[in-house]
Design a protein around this nucleic acid. Structure first.
Lengths: 366, 366
DNA sequence: TTGTACGCGTTATCAC
DNA sequence: GTGATAACGCGTACAA
């Protein structure tokens, strides 16, 4: 499947030893501190001196201060770790996560810090990569039980931490969403349209990601806060609506669960409220397969307010969560803490958006 | 939209100064070197001594060696930079990229290196973040003209570099795909089924991402290698097939271009060959909208071999590219170069997969 | 097995 | 504006 082809010289196999700033200074006939300042720009240097230093650097092939040494001296590496759970692929499959990462890069822009991707590996024993990584701060995403181990490591090192959508305990600033209230908003919209026969599609309840009917038992053992909160919100309006959990936030999962819900015309609901836009898109797909028109025959609502690739014409009725904002807020808190100020917990709110996928129930239904 | 809620103590605002390994050694009544060895495990230490050191560390709240100092001393930071072009969100929207990132983490696993995400920011002047980041090596992804600036910086610093799907010039190891041959395979399959009336949907030709008919002019000014090569492969079999470029590798783009191709029954092709699975999925969607059955009325082939979320029943006829392998190979080359060996350019090959979306042309259609 | 001493490459501080 | 000096915190020859 692969073939080795040509070799190539390794970059870095130069003469002997890489030039240091001291070498450059000597070559230029100035003090090392002066050379340093030329590169950092932290003080004024005569134009002529600067020239000489730069010339010497070019001469010696010196490409600027070694970041490792600079980190040690400054006590800052300019890197912020982002800890995700599970495979990176899974994390980035979720549009909400990627939007959030985008916001994070924005929020961190002032620091011009890089983002170090890390998985929260439960099996990794003590060390994990987090203990050896030269990072200035850590952002924990979706801190469920598993992320706790990462948290210990981080606190032990005394690094600033921000948690997005999760609870890391006392004293750790968080970025949270009003999931319950927002879900209730969606449910009220559906109720106000006249629907009384409603089914719910939830995100996974726990790390087993089991697909199927959500029973009272399963709710009490659920561990994923987002799922729990959004479910609670809808249940404020529809206390008895049946709920089915999906194995993930995927269109195809929505299709599968959608078929389960819609297959039997006798028990078919007039509206489906899904806990994510991807699931909602899947439900719509399932409905269309069955020849149902959305929203005429079936109303479908989602959650997140992302642009679903492949949804086509429809504008989903949904609750738009400030995904980019979440990331930005986290980035800003990190910046604050690095400045020595205290981190602030922020609650962000979602905004209901009425789309074209919900309408009054079909005439005659219920 | 957001509300400040509660403040919290900043982690890291401790007593006075963080304990160092020297403090721990003193407290434990051993030499610093002994304490160091206890943490690194690079030599044998008497169990009793180890205990004392660990106890002292716990006492002082010492959480292990400072990674910044360790990096300087070792000359390694344990971080590999991955340079993507454009917004992170856009990059991670592409399933191929995320799969590749997954492979990269695997390939880098031996090094237990972290991945530092960086954008190739053309506007960022000289420095960019790359010059100040304490990284051991760099992986450049999709090195088109723009990534050149990053490349300069990296070479200047003498860091090992690997380029995935791009050409960075002499002496830089690359990971490439046999795009042309693989595309030709797909085209031959379609031809062997009996299709002679075929249309192509291509990826963007250049950074303008213009959507529309691909003319000879546009091909000569195209800059995206992947697009050019895959197009060339198909044209080996169908030299005169009309091609339409999409504005990106998205299902919705496939839908748009698909409609353009299929709207008019008179000029409708019997098969569409798309340059990515997402585009193919969109074309299928467009076909189904128009009441065409796939593959009975229209054959559709893609490229990539990814699992398209939302494609439902169909198994796409496609060329499966070793996306994860690409990442893994890059990771392995980085590992090699860090070991002091020379980097090797690797050509990976795609594997044709016949799916359920292609079939002989409808009876009567010439 | 344990201890001593040096240097990794910078940058902050203070004099000049 | 420039120069000398002292850390930054650790790893590791080398000697004991």
């Amino acid at each position: 499947m692969s073939s080795v082809d040509s070799t190539s010289r390794q970059a870095g196999t130069e003469h002997h030893r890489r030039a240091t700033i001291a070498d450059v200074a000597r070559e230029a006939g100035v003090a090392t501190s002066t050379a340093s300042v030329v590169f950092s720009g932290k003080a004024k240097v005569a134009a002529s001196t600067r020239e000489r230093v730069l010339a010497a650097a070019a001469e010696l092939g010196y490409a600027g201060p070694d970041p490792r040494a600079a980190s040690l001296r400054r006590g800052r590496s300019g890197i912020v770790a982002v800890v995700l759970e599970g495979h990176l692929r899974a994390a980035f499959l979720d549009p909400v996560t990627t939007a959030m990462m985008d916001g994070l890069t924005d929020g961190l822009a002032d620091l011009s810090a890089g983002i170090l991707l890390m998985r929260d590996e439960p099996g990794e024993g003590d060390g994990s990569a987090l203990s050896n990584a030269p990072v200035d701060a850590v952002v924990l995403i979706g801190c469920s039980g598993r992320t706790r181990s990462s948290l210990e490591v981080v606190r032990g090192r005394g690094l600033p931490v921000v948690v997005i959508e999760g609870d890391a305990g006392e004293g750790i600033p968080r970025i949270t969403l009003d999931n319950t209230a927002a879900a209730a908003d969606v449910a009220r919209h559906v109720r106000d349209l006249g629907h009384s026969d409603v089914a719910l599609v939830t995100l996974p309840l726990d790390s087993t990601r089991e697909r199927g009917l959500v029973t009272a038992d399963r709710i009490t053992t659920a561990t994923v806060d987002v799922t729990i909160h959004r479910l609670a919100g809808v249940r404020e309006v529809y206390p008895d609506a049946p709920a089915y959990s999906a194995a993930g936030s995927l269109i195809d999962e929505g299709v599968i669960v959608g078929r389960m819900l819609l297959a039997d015309a006798a028990t078919r609901p007039t509206a489906v409220i899904a806990q994510s836009d991807l699931l909602a898109a899947g439900v719509i797909r399932a409905a269309e397969e069955l020849g149902l028109r959305v929203p005429e025959d079936l109303s479908v609502a989602g959650f997140d307010g992302i642009a679903v690739d492949g949804l086509g014409e429809h504008t989903l009725t949904t609750s738009v969560q400030p995904a980019v904002e979440k990331g930005r807020a986290a980035g800003e808190q990190v910046a604050r803490m690095l400045r020595g100020e205290s981190g602030i917990t922020q609650h962000l709110t979602c905004r209901f958006r009425a789309g074209s996928t919900t309408a009054p129930p079909p005439f005659g239904a219920r």
